[in-house]
Design a protein around this nucleic acid. Sequence first.
DNA 1: ATATAATGCTAACAATATATTAACATAATT
DNA 2: AATTATGTTAATATATTGTTAGCATTATAT
Lengths: 229, 229
Amino acid sequence: MFMPKENILIVDDEDDVLELVRYNLEKEGYAVQTAVCGEEALTKARAKLPDLIILDLMLPGIDGLSVCKKLKEDTKTQNIPVIMLTAKSEDSDIVSGLELGADDYVTKPFSPKVLIARVRRAFQRSVVRDLNNAIVKVREMTIDPSRREVIIKNKPIELTFTEFNILYTLAKRPGQVFTRYQIVDAIHGEDYLVTDRAIDVQIVSLRKKLGSYEKNIETVRGVGYRLKD
Amino acid sequence: MFMPKENILIVDDEDDVLELVRYNLEKEGYAVQTAVCGEEALTKARAKLPDLIILDLMLPGIDGLSVCKKLKEDTKTQNIPVIMLTAKSEDSDIVSGLELGADDYVTKPFSPKVLIARVRRAFQRSVVRDLNNAIVKVREMTIDPSRREVIIKNKPIELTFTEFNILYTLAKRPGQVFTRYQIVDAIHGEDYLVTDRAIDVQIVSLRKKLGSYEKNIETVRGVGYRLKD
DNA sequence: ATATAATGCTAACAATATATTAACATAATT
DNA sequence: AATTATGTTAATATATTGTTAGCATTATAT
């Protein structure tokens, strides 16, 4: 019944900031790690693969922007969302930070509430991203992520969260084969551990709900699944 | 607090400007969101559908004019009024901005009073405001925001401030799914910190008051809520 | 200005829906 | 025919939502 909490790496050379942030995030139930310079940040990011990094831009040694850039270059760490901490004056940094792939920024001084709101938001984003995505049509099937609705021949089909996500993942690239783990990654992010059978089970119930349309989800033996083009 | 707050997106790369504008608009009771570059502006505009956009023309990356153009091309965002911020010298920009569909402009440096006056004016004449204040009817339910009144089968229903805002938010786009945090954002602006359960509690009491109509508020498991279309 | 009431929030727990595993069956490939 | 991959089912684990109660805050009335 316990949820393994998200791991957050905070990078700041000021001890006050570090402890303030740590205190507030731990109170929220997050697991917190800290680093006081760019080198430490990169090492820990690679070693522990946190779920989120809060990164001050003013750092001794390697500065925050370079850290951000390096994180986004490394395939291991590039998908970890980064929230930047910046001083008021550094707007140009905000811009380049966002361009470098940072996900959000908070200007100092900040209130803990704002930071927590941003952290939550960062974790929420994957669902929201889908909600704003385009409607996909394949033959007589329409998939509308903003309504979370699938319509086949004018009949709405009720799908669960995962079923919908699988179908939408496949439908965005009809004809392309996805391995089981590509599918899982697309839905739960990397290193989400399930057995192959788990995906098969979802495919089964998905096919069931699609009725006569089930044959559009093709099994590619030895590889995975795809939606018929 | 009687009316639902209008949501304003401010786009500027200068932090001082952003915060100055944010401060003044929030003092006026508007809900504020911000973006520091063109990409962020477009993303947020599409995701949150603000009621008004204040757009600086000098932006890194995609410039303000292009942002404005793209906004006016997209049916989702084209009715959102845009107020441009321009430096004195850029008269030609003002012209092309207005041609591209911007609704008004303010030249920098500006006084907060002037900006607020323009914002008010924009809302007074905007289609969005009409839409915003429009009476929404879904089946036998009528929601009148100007009277803060909900009528179901000719019977008035009394709702609290938040209950009303949630219902109205959902009812403006029937069928569309809103995450809990999209709902909170629409009502309180970003960075308003509540737990998921807080929204659920509101939904519960809302459903209770809607009586037999409660089933029109649908739970979309794993995502959020929507009003039946 | 103070008391009273209404509202909104959190926290804890209950109820429900969904996802996953494990075990086995079936089908395809060699 | 043997082997391997996939399909299926049911039990179980996990995650999400519903609900209640109590507290804090804000609005309203006295």
